[in-house]
């Protein structure tokens, strides 16, 4: 944890996960030698903390714009967040991770018309009791990206490959009048 302070990285938001991914931390706040060395070697920056900090902050700046980088960081969050010997993430951790990843400096899953991350959390707290497996974790990002591009959710179809939890979420949203089929668009245009 000391290390994160040295890099001037917040533990409360997506910044934390950037570093986790960079050094391939096996669990929260745990860094091993191999991951550290390999990570910084491939990043190709100098050895001082100042240089590290500069690199990390450059990455953080790009995080919300660079989809590939965000995906890498997002997916790694699942690996780092699991309890040992577990295949899935506890719902509690997953909710916290989503909260920090889907807000600045991460990818904001929120628009002027819909607070998607809020809806998602509300939906899960009402309807979901189990832990979050890898598929659900990964597909949530896919869904988030798509939903930001098309808030009518018209990309979704019943026959699609979405996990059933996403299917249920779409149905849940539509019940609330969110994400109508495209003909009845009530959503404000998004800049």
């Amino acid at each position: 944890m000391e290390y994160f302070k040295k890099l001037n990285v917040s533990l409360e938001n997506a910044e934390f996960f950037v570093v986790q991914e960079l050094v391939q931390a096996p669990s929260i706040g745990e860094i091993n030698r191999k991951g550290y060395v390999n990570g910084w070697n491939s990043a190709g920056v100098g050895a001082s903390h100042e240089e590290h900090a500069a690199h990390v902050h450059a990455l953080i700046k790009d995080l919300s714009r660079d989809a590939a980088l965000f995906k890498k960081v997002y997916r790694y969050a699942f690996i780092t967040g699991r309890e040992r010997e577990q295949k899935s993430l506890s719902l509690e951790n997953a909710l916290a991770f989503w909260e920090s990843l889907f807000s600045a400096p991460g990818m904001e899953w929120k628009t002027r018309s819909n607070d998607w991350i809020g809806l998602w959390k509300q939906f899960l707290s009402e309807k979901w009791t189990r832990s979050v497996n890898k598929d659900m974790w990964n597909m949530t990002l896919e869904f988030a990206v798509k939903s930001l591009q098309d808030e009518t959710l018209s990309f979704w179809s019943e026959d699609g490959a979405w996990p059933s939890v996403i299917d249920d979420f779409v149905a849940w949203c539509r019940q609330r009048g969110i994400g109508h089929a495209s003909e009845s668009m009530e959503v404000d245009p998004v800049e």
Partner: peptide, 14 residues
């Protein structure tokens, strides 16, 4: 049912 198949696919993914 389509939904059942989907759930089974998810189990297998898991």
């Amino acid at each position: 049912k389509v939904g059942d198949i989907k759930k089974c696919i998810e189990i297998l993914l898991d």
